[in-house]
């Protein structure tokens, strides 16, 4: 009986410490010091939330950069990957179809060099990034559909470079480009 009494009380107190005080304290600190990040790194445009710089979004238009394939069509409720195995006939067909689509959309200058992340779906279904190579692959198509002259096209290539995040701290992770941020910057390339 004594044990049960102690258990009840200590459970209550630890709940208050770890389940109430701790998350509230972190929320307080986060909201005070890092409100932009704590609230989802949202991007506003004309007083409207256009998305989060961390959450990828669907983009089918041929005048913007395409993101990676997503098993959930970039609907975050809930996040998810395909969970298909490498021996899945379905996955093999998907990759074949994506390759054909990608070449049809972007031209066939060197089919064997398509960056693999454009053929495989991400883990979260919300991957905000593609590799710089994957962005460069799409430059010709976007320049053509936007009727860019050669100066503007050069600017486009520059834009990719500016938006390329190198491995963090010099060695961690992979070089990458944030697709939504790149597309927003793309709209600012003037005539």
């Amino acid at each position: 009986m004594k044990t049960i009494k102690i258990a009840l009380r200590i459970f209550l107190l630890l709940t208050l410490i770890t389940g109430v005080a701790y998350p509230l304290a972190i929320t307080g600190i986060a909201q005070a010091l890092l409100p932009q990040k704590a609230n989802g790194s949202l991007i506003h445009q004309q007083n409207k939330v256009i998305g989060s710089s961390l959450i990828g979004q669907a983009m089918d238009s041929s005048i913007y950069f395409s993101p990676r394939p997503s098993a959930i069509g970039y609907n975050p409720l809930p996040s998810g990957g395909s969970n298909l195995s490498l021996t899945s006939a379905k996955l093999i067909k998907q990759v074949k179809d994506r390759k054909a689509d990608f070449l049809k959309k972007n031209g066939t200058n060197n089919p064997s060099s398509i960056p693999s992340e454009m053929l495989f779906a991400s883990a979260s279904g919300l991957d905000p990034h593609i590799s710089p190579k994957a962005a460069e692959w799409q430059v010709n198509r976007i320049a053509k559909n936007r009727n860019f002259n050669s100066v503007q096209k050069l600017k486009l290539l520059q834009l990719i470079q500016e938006h390329t995040e190198q491995p963090q701290c010099g060695i961690l992770g992979e070089a990458r480009v944030n697709v939504l941020e790149l597309n927003l910057a793309l709209d600012k390339i003037k005539e």
């Binding site: 990040k37 609230n39 939330v49 256009i50 970039y74």
Partner: peptide, 25 residues
């Protein structure tokens, strides 16, 4: 949080995406 992990008690955010869809974050 400094790297971008969310920490809030807000309702889910409805975004109006670049291609005009809604995305609930």
């Amino acid at each position: 949080v400094g790297q971008g992990v969310v920490q809030n008690f807000s309702p889910y955010e409805t975004a109006h995406t670049l291609q005009g869809q809604t995305q609930v974050i």
